[in-house]
Design a protein around this nucleic acid. Structure first.
Lengths: 203, 203
DNA sequence: TGACAATGTTACCGATCGGTACGTAGCATT
DNA sequence: AATGCTACGTACCGATCGGTAACATTGTCA
């Protein structure tokens, strides 16, 4: 008997040893939910594209809504990785860190087929505050706003809260307008505008 | 014989004399589509809340998609009325006109239950560019951007296109973040941030 | 080898989706 | 009174929605 636990639950390895099907479902759902929207994609299309069947989905995820929430949790993780990527490149330079993300975002948001922020899109798709996916999104945005206040403070803004709000508005505006306008959209002015706003927040 | 036309089409009055059912459907659809989202609302719920039946809907509108497009056309009309309301209050003062809209928007976007811009929401709901509702929304946003360039030019900005883009980003950001954050959201900083950005665009 | 748990599959459920065929009530003109 | 036209309602269509019961297969231990 392995020296783990004497309980009758041998499920401990199942928590980290992910079944192959669940992962395929996860990644397929992520791609389809993001590209087409959550409401637009049925579970049948997810499992068929993932090469599995519906019961496999419902053994790993309680419902489509929960799968959507899980998708957003994955999305959030990936977001923070991209957003904080500048930390290593420019340590001790909050402004450079932020601008690095803004430059990358401006690039992506002016590509054709850009779909904005998956978390923001979920909020638009589910106005009622009872949906699990929306809760994930709202909680993330709250954290994101706090992070922008941190960065604004580190940049030496006179009113960090106001600058953080301004940056958040610009970012959300980029997510949204990036999917309405083509490559020559307003997102192409993001960096210049952000520079102006940050400069104006300094003196 | 009335001195109209000798043709065999007595449908001329039908074009302006709207049937009552179509109007009820229109206003009901507008409210439900905006509050809950287009994909979230079925035609059955529209007609039942309007007190009519489905065939009445499909006699006036070719499809649900077309009804959604019509809803956005109505929405756009109402939008321009609100946006251009400052024209009468502050003629020959582009900045005051714009700020009047921004102040009103900041108020609305910090109310609980705010749902953002119906046109932007439609773009998020329908990523494919073939949906009639999305076409209405995209066309409107293009016109809106041009209008912001006009206003930025009239304000005397050094780079009117850049200021217009910055304002558009702030506005779209307000529409989006207004429905994620509560009353104390980033939209409450819209006016202050916009002032900073406009000032910075002048010298 | 054999027991067991996890993951796989086939086939189906009731509900709801957008959309329509068909009958009828009201009202004008003849 | 009969006709033609418009507007509306009843009842229904096939397709798809999210979700599940029952069974087969596989891998991993003793």
């Amino acid at each position: 008997m392995p020296a783990k636990r004497s309980e009758s639950k041998p499920l401990e390895t199942a928590a980290d040893t992910k079944p192959k099907a669940a992962d395929r479902i996860r990644s397929t759902a992520r791609e389809l939910f993001y590209r087409e929207g959550i409401r637009a994609i049925g579970v049948e299309e997810i499992v068929s594209r993932a090469g599995v069947t519906k019961p496999s989905l419902y053994r790993s995820y309680a419902s489509k809504d929960e799968l959507a929430a899980e998708y957003l949790r994955d999305y959030e993780l990936a977001f923070w990785q991209v957003f904080e990527a500048g930390k290593e490149t420019y340590p001790d330079d909050a402004r450079a860190q932020l601008m690095a993300y803004l430059e990358g975002l401006a690039q992506r948001a002016t590509q054709i087929g850009y779909r904005g922020c998956g978390l923001t899109n979920a909020v638009v798709e589910y106005p009622g505050d009872d949906h699990p996916a929306r809760k994930v999104a709202e909680e993330h945005k709250r954290k994101f706003r706090e992070r922008l206040v941190q960065l604004s403070t580190a940049m030496g803004a006179k009113q960090p809260d106001t600058l953080a709000d301004g940056l958040l508005l610009l970012l959300e505006g980029t997510y949204a307008s990036g999917q309405m306008f083509g490559p020559k959209g307003p997102a192409s002015s993001l960096v210049k505008v952000a520079e102006q706003l940050i400069d104006a927040s300094m003196r």
